[in-house]
Amino acid sequence: MIKFRRAFGLVIVGVLLLSACSASFSEHKAEIKEQVATTFESQPEKTNNSTKDIEYYLPSSFKVEEETPNNVLLKDGSKTFILFYNQHEKEDSKVVYDSTVKQQKEWDANETFTKDGKFGYMLVKQLKENRYQLIVGIGGVKLTTETEDVRDDAEAMMDIANSVKIK
């Protein structure tokens, strides 16, 4: 019984130490911005999915759940992502970004990127402790999700947004 109590106590201490060491979004904000900017500036992934209007890259863990005009509902495990596109807006358009920014008064992150005639962005809003609304886009393309893992999801979402090609 004493060994069990010690082991249980060590597990509790370990969990407390790990939770105290886990960094918040604000501590990693600059790193995440740099990671998303690098993905934005990189060569787009080769497309492997399409709708009536667009072709796009989808990482292997993502699945198409539903397609409607201008929207593709994606799943990655239990996470849901919405891929919105306006095929009339070019890669340098700020229309989707401007309308999205106006939906919230304040964002925990409002980062923009430009390169070679493309306009990209990342918006993050904390919803509750360790839960964030994450929006990533380029021109007339926008991906939205709710997540606890802003870093990994932002990079994957920018990979998808960067790959979208209007047919």
Results as ranks from 00 to 15, higher is better:
V95H: 05
I138Y: 01
V15T: 14
D153A: 05
K3M: 11
E111Y: 11
I82W: 01
L143K: 05
T39S: 12
L74E: 05
A30Q: 13
D98S: 09
M157P: 00
V124L: 10
G139R: 14
D153C: 04
R151N: 07
T100A: 07
I12K: 10
T51H: 07
K63T: 12
K29L: 04
N86S: 04
K75I: 00
T68Q: 10
M1W: 10
N130Y: 07
N49S: 11
E129A: 15
T51Q: 07
E55K: 14
K46H: 09
V164I: 07
I2T: 11
N130F: 06
W107F: 08
K94L: 03
N110Y: 01
K90A: 14
T68E: 15
N70C: 06
R151D: 13
L10A: 09
T147W: 00
E91I: 07
T80N: 03
C21A: 12
A30T: 11
T51W: 09
D53H: 03
N48L: 05
E89H: 02
D98N: 10
K75N: 02
A154R: 00
V164F: 08
E27I: 08
E148L: 02
V64G: 13
I32R: 04
F4G: 11
L73Q: 10
K63N: 11
W107V: 05
Y56I: 04
H28D: 10
I2D: 11
E91N: 09
K142Q: 09
T47L: 05
Y85I: 01
V101H: 03
S163Y: 03
D116N: 15
V101L: 06
E31H: 02
N70S: 14
G120Q: 03
F4H: 14
F62N: 03
T38F: 13
V11P: 12
D159C: 00
L83S: 01
I160M: 01
Q103F: 03
K102D: 04
E31S: 03
I135W: 02
P44D: 09
D149K: 13
S61H: 11
F113N: 08
L73W: 04
R131L: 15
I2H: 12
K94V: 12
K63L: 12
G139S: 05
Q43F: 13
N71R: 13
S61N: 12
K115S: 14
A154G: 07
